[in-house]
């Protein structure tokens, strides 16, 4: 069971890493607007349509 003295600190480090990644993700703004992205598919379609017409 002595292995716990190594494993628990390692898990603690991993958790610290997780927190760091999460904070970075929030700061990058990817959670700012959770509703808009559902509608993005329509945007892209319009662009494709326009390209199609141009060709």
């Amino acid at each position: 069971m002595e292995i716990l003295f190594i494993l628990v600190p390692i898990s603690a480090l991993l958790m610290g890493l997780a927190i760091w990644v999460f904070i970075r993700a929030v700061d990058s703004g990817q959670f700012d607007d959770l509703d808009q992205h559902a509608l993005d598919i329509f945007e892209e379609q319009e662009e494709q349509d326009r390209e199609h017409i141009n060709r």
Binding site: A12, M15, I19, F22, V26, G29, F31, D32
Partner: peptide
């Protein structure tokens, strides 16, 4: 509320990850 929202989300996330452990 944009910036406020981010701060709230970070607080929530940190508490959530810490809670698991």
């Amino acid at each position: 509320s944009g910036i406020q929202n981010r701060a709230a989300l970070k607080r929530l996330g940190v508490a959530g990850i810490a809670m698991m452990q």
